[in-house]
Write a protein that binds this DNA or RNA. Structure first.
Length: 217
DNA sequence: AAAACGGGGGC
DNA sequence: GCCCCAGTTTT
């Protein structure tokens, strides 16, 4: 299937209201601060956007560098990021990461995938998202929406996130890699929902084969 | 009362 | 691969 990506992306931008920078990056102020991007990405795990943003703002107003973070106790961090889900685990993770950054990476967030993956609490998703948002390095971040939507639309046919990452790199121009996650997350939340999606108000239904969708609105 | 949710670690 | 983790919203 030959897909008009420029058009699809621009329609999604308008439909979702997402401009170019996702909410996590905006927390970082004028330029994306890799440390803030990484830490808010950790906080965002299983947590809604609004909660992630307020939790990140509270945390960063108390500490926004690895060394400042290490002056806080784990319960203090947990208290700052509450009510983000898994807040106790995340507080430990944030402190561990901060310590490692200070010891092994000169207090900075590494910009190589392999280095990011060695950090505790950082998996493929978090690492790729950080590479894109913090450093502008083209990388595709596959979450449930980025996996579900292209498959439902019939653009690709994959069964796991890693396959999806490869398949999307094949069909999607590199200039859209960083943005696709933000767009599809927003799109998947309000229109292309996991069950009974709002196909009647979908702006890109022209390019969707609705594979696997039995019920829709 | 379940299921779902911007996952990842330990085994 | 499977199981665990463990807060909140949505259905």
């Amino acid at each position: 299937m030959k897909l008009p990506w420029k058009q699809i992306i621009s329609v999604l931008r308008r439909a979702t209201g997402a401009t170019e920078v996702p909410s996590v990056t905006k927390i970082a102020g004028d330029g994306p601060d890799p440390y803030r991007v990484l830490i808010s990405t950790i906080i965002s795990l299983r947590t809604r956007d609004e909660v992630t943003i307020s939790a990140s703002e509270r945390l960063f107003s108390a500490a926004d560098t690895p060394s400042a973070m290490l002056r806080l106790s784990s319960p203090a961090v947990a208290d700052l990021i509450y009510p983000a889900g898994f807040y106790r685990t995340k507080a430990d993770t944030i402190l561990k990461i901060s310590g490692i950054l200070l010891e092994a990476h000169d207090g900075k967030v590494p910009s190589r995938l392999t280095d990011l993956l060695t950090l505790p609490g950082v998996g493929r998703k978090t690492a790729n998202l950080t590479l894109g948002l913090a450093f502008g390095i083209p990388s595709i971040c596959v979450d449930t929406h980025v996996h579900r939507i292209p498959n439902r639309a019939g653009w690709i046919s994959t069964s796991n996130p890693e396959q999806t990452e490869d398949a999307l790199m094949q069909i999607l121009p590199e200039e859209f890699w960083i943005e696709i996650n933000t767009l599809l997350v927003a799109f998947g939340k309000d229109t292309c929902t996991p069950v009974s999606p709002w196909c009647s108000r979908c702006p890109i239904s022209n390019w969707c084969s609705r594979i696997g969708v039995s019920r829709h609105r």
